[in-house]
């Protein structure tokens, strides 16, 4: 399936792009992360500490073990700092 991957804050800076489109057969977010990490050194560095990474699937907060199902958009970002 085709997925839009979005990155925010320092993840965007470390990846070097705010978004990219990937073809994947990953069943879960964790499997998708493993594929992304294998793409480039930048991806590997940005996603090296998953404890500092939050994830949303189709704009809903979830966790690394979430199934991707028919998702269209997955976003990776640091813990949020609003307010």
């Amino acid at each position: 399936m085709t997925l839009d991957i979005l990155y925010f804050a320092w993840l965007r800076e470390r990846i070097g792009a705010p978004r990219e489109r990937v073809e994947t057969s990953a069943a879960t977010v964790r499997e998708l992360v493993a594929e992304l990490v294998a793409r480039t050194d930048r991806h590997a560095a940005a996603l090296s500490d998953l404890g500092a990474v939050r994830v949303a699937v189709d704009q809903a907060l979830t966790d690394l073990d979430a199934p991707l199902g028919n998702a269209r958009e997955v976003a990776f970002f640091p813990p949020m700092t609003g307010g």
């Binding site: 804050a9 949303a56 970002f77 813990p79 949020m80 700092t81 609003g82 307010g83």
Partner: peptide, 21 residues
């Protein structure tokens, strides 16, 4: 801590780091 916003500090010399949660 749950709304999708991320803050970065700007000083006189330009952008500094991202604010940690």
């Amino acid at each position: 801590s749950r709304a999708p916003f991320w803050k970065r500090e700007i000083g006189a010399q330009g952008p500094r780091g991202w604010v940690a949660a």
